[in-house]
């Protein structure tokens, strides 16, 4: 038995799961006031949070919103109970911040766009613009109501019922907005 008795072959450490493991530690450190730990959290999550803010609110506001979200999360770290993934918690908070600010700054035009006149606005055929913009950037040009539903449903994976609750609309409105957004986005498919 001189040769090593073989150990169990275990899954190697999966880089994808490292953020989760590191979050658990960094969140506790940050909750204790460690700004460097919080910076690590920020670096890990900023691409997704910024992506969400950019698509939900547009390029111009995305930076400000992202900063607001991370400041708000810092303030509330103490209330993160750790029974959900930190990423999930942060994400939920981000959506609340984004939607909350929308409520405060909602424009007349937005209100008009919101929910009504959906059918009429659908182009019979996707209009092919001369200067085609990137699919991702095109999301920012969707009417705000349709855009939010599209981002939450097709990109972030929420169900209509959840979206309806978050946006305070009916599930039917959410479905109609989603369809509207998708019909419009057809024009921006890269071929």
């Amino acid at each position: 038995m001189a040769a090593a008795v073989s150990g169990v072959t275990m899954p190697s450490v999966d880089p994808d799961t490292v953020p989760a493991a590191s979050d658990a530690i960094d969140v506790r450190l940050a909750a204790g006031g460690d700004a460097r730990a919080y910076e690590r959290i920020y670096r890990r999550h900023v691409p997704r949070i910024h992506g969400l803010a950019r698509r939900m609110a547009g390029d111009d506001d995305a930076g400000d919103l992202t900063q607001m979200i991370f400041v708000r999360a810092w303030e509330r770290l103490g209330s993160f109970r750790g029974d959900a993934a930190f990423g999930t918690w942060l994400y939920r908070l981000a959506i609340n911040v984004i939607l909350g600010r929308r409520a405060a700054t909602r424009t007349e035009r937005e209100r008009r766009d919101h929910g009504e006149g959906v059918i009429e606005a659908i182009p019979a055929r996707p209009a092919r613009s001369e200067h085609r913009i990137d699919f991702d950037a095109a999301i920012g040009r969707l009417p705000p109501g349709a855009r939010r539903v599209f981002v939450l449903h097709d990109i972030e994976g929420y169900k209509h019922e959840e979206i309806a609750r978050m946006l305070r609309v009916t599930a039917g409105t959410s479905k109609a907005q989603l369809h509207r957004a998708r019909m419009l986005m057809r024009a921006h498919l890269e071929r």
Partner: peptide, 10 residues
């Protein structure tokens, strides 16, 4: 090959 969720949940 891997599975992903938007929210990063296993």
């Amino acid at each position: 090959v891997r599975a992903t969720t938007r929210l990063g949940v296993p």
